[in-house]
C-alpha cells in the first residue's frame, strides 16, 4: 500500500491532471474556464508553500554558518537581520508599499541593490566579450558584427557615429533575428510537447525525486 502511495499514486495524479489540463483547452464552456482559473489559484498557493521551502533551506544554510562560526559568518548574520527587519516592517505596513516603511525599504534598499547588481553585469559582459569575441571563425565574426551593430544602432551616439547602424539593427532584429528566434521557438516547443507527453504518461519521472 505504501509503495502504491509512494510511486503509483503520484503517477496516476500526474496523468489525470495532465489529461484534464490538456482537454480543458478544447472545451470552451464556462465550467471548464472556471475550473482552469480555480486550479491556477491552487498552483499559486502550492508554489507559495514551495517558496517557504526554498527560504527555509537558505535560512538553514546561513544558520549553520553562524552556529559553526565559519569564516565570514558575520555576513550570514547580516542576511538574518536584514530579512527579519524587512519582514517586521512589511507586516507593520500590512504589505502596503505606498508611503510606508516597507515601500521605503523597497525603493531605497532593494531597488538600489538590485539595480546595481544587474548594472555591474554590463562591465563583466563587456569584459567577457572582449576575451570571447575574437573573430576566430566566420561564425564568430558574424556574431561580433551583429552585436556591434545592435549596440550602436540602439543609442543616439551610435547612430551618429555609424548612420546606417539604426536601420540595419532594426532590420536585423525584425527579420534575421525573428527567423532564428522562430526556428528556436518551434524546436523548443516540439521538445516541450514531447517532454510533457512523457511526464503525463509516466515515462519521465525525475521530477518526483527519490530512489523508489
Amino acid at each position: 500500500m505504501i509503495l502504491f502511495l509512494r510511486r503509483t499514486f503520484p503517477l496516476i495524479l500526474t496523468f489525470l491532471f495532465g489529461v484534464a489540463g490538456a482537454l480543458q483547452y478544447y472545451i470552451p464552456h464556462p465550467v471548464s474556464e472556471a475550473a482552469l482559473t480555480e486550479v491556477s489559484v491552487w498552483l499559486r498557493i502550492i508554489l507559495g508553500f514551495a517558496m517557504i521551502l526554498g527560504i527555509a533551506s537558505l535560512c538553514h544554510v546561513h544558520y549553520a554558518k553562524i552556529r559553526t562560526r565559519v569564516a565570514g559568518w558575520g555576513y550570514s548574520l547580516v542576511v538574518y537581520l536584514s530579512m527579519m527587519i524587512t519582514v517586521v516592517v512589511g507586516v507593520w505596513s500590512r504589505g502596503q508599499e505606498e508611503g510606508t516603511g516597507f515601500g521605503w525599504i523597497y525603493t531605497y534598499a532593494l531597488l538600489a541593490l538590485q539595480g546595481t547588481m544587474f548594472a555591474m553585469l554590463g562591465f563583466f559582459v563587456a569584459s567577457a566579450a572582449f576575451r570571447a569575441f575574437r573573430a576566430r571563425s566566420k561564425e564568430a565574426a558574424v556574431l561580433l558584427v551583429a552585436a556591434i551593430l545592435m549596440m550602436f544602432g540602439r543609442v543616439p551616439l551610435g547612430e551618429y557615429l555609424i548612420p546606417m547602424a539604426g536601420p540595419v539593427a532594426g532590420w536585423l532584429l525584425s527579420v534575421v533575428n525573428t527567423a532564428a528566434r522562430r526556428g528556436i521557438l518551434i524546436g523548443i516547443s516540439l521538445g516541450g510537447i514531447a517532454m510533457s507527453v512523457k511526464i503525463i504518461f509516466g515515462i519521465e519521472r525525475s521530477y518526483l525525486g527519490g530512489r523508489d
Binding site: 500526474t14 491532471f17 489540463g21 490538456a22 508553500f49 517532454m195 507527453v197 511526464i199
Partner: peptide, 14 residues
C-alpha cells in the same frame, strides 16, 4: 503536490 503541479502544468502547456 509535485505530481499535481507538474501534471497540470504539462497538460495545460501542450
Amino acid at each position: 503536490s509535485f505530481a499535481v503541479i507538474v501534471g497540470f502544468g504539462s497538460g495545460v502547456a501542450i
